[in-house]
Design a binder for these strands. Structure first.
Length: 224
DNA sequence: ATTAGGATCAACT
DNA sequence: GTTGATCCTAATA
């Protein structure tokens, strides 16, 4: 055994995201989204994501083709696709695959690991810190992500960027486990198990005991 | 603990 | 005119 390298934040490379949405989902779990704006820096470790594909996925915004709203999904991997829903919320996705092939991973929930005060200020209705970023629109609110960041390159290391998972996480001495389930809130493609989350995490949204949940490996540290 | 209804608007039929 | 990749509050158990 040689010396353990320092756990410095490392920018997640675009290559790690220019892959199939299922692989990108597993890479994103454990990664940390960092937003540095004038009112503070907030960092969120992702614990729950959902994969959305293209023409073969009726639940995806890209299913019916390219529009001004969803155009970013056809662009380069590692950029952010932000959309507005229900008249008052924003949700964010990380674009995957290669240029011209739509696909993205919805960021559904995470643990606020930095900038708690700023996050609490932006999420006044949260009654516990575990609720600060539990849910896709809450996560965006905690990071102050709006349509201003639609198309933003997360791999450039500017105000909003993504850090690779730097640790081998464990709980009670065993590695964290990824499980998958059906996606939340979608009314089509119900059967597909395209939601990925960290088993047992208190920061995961929408847990339902009745749901079918299957194992799906452990978080992957990107090696590129 | 679980459920139902309302808020509020851009994109799309 | 209808529909959401949602969240919050209030009501019921």
């Amino acid at each position: 055994m040689h010396a353990v390298p320092p756990l410095l934040p490392r920018l997640l490379p675009r290559d790690a995201l220019a892959v199939d949405v299922l692989d990108a989902a597993r890479t994103l779990l454990g990664s940390v989204l960092v937003a540095s704006t004038t009112d503070g820096e907030v960092a969120v470790r992702l614990v729950e994501v959902e994969a959305y594909r293209g023409a073969d996925d009726p639940a995806s915004h890209s299913y019916r083709g390219r529009t001004p709203r969803n155009a970013v999904m056809w662009g380069p991997a590692g950029h952010l696709y932000v959309y507005f829903v229900y008249g008052m919320h924003y949700c964010a996705n990380v674009v995957c695959l290669t240029d011209g092939v739509p696909g993205a991973v919805l960021l559904r929930a995470g643990e606020v690991i930095g900038g708690l005060d700023a996050a609490r200020h932006r999420r006044p209705t949260a009654r516990a810190d575990a609720e600060l970023a539990r849910g896709p629109a809450r996560l965006c609110a905690a990071l102050d992500v709006t349509r201003q960041f639609d198309g933003w390159d997360l791999t450039a290391g500017r105000e909003l960027w993504i850090a690779a998972d730097a640790e081998d996480h464990e709980q009670n001495g065993t590695p964290l486990r990824i499980v998958r389930s059906r996606r939340i809130g979608v009314t089509s493609a119900h059967h597909r198990l395209l939601r990925f989350f960290i088993a047992g995490s208190p920061y995961v949204s929408g847990w339902r005991s009745a749901w079918k949940v299957v194992p799906s490996g452990s978080p992957r540290r990107s090696t590129t």
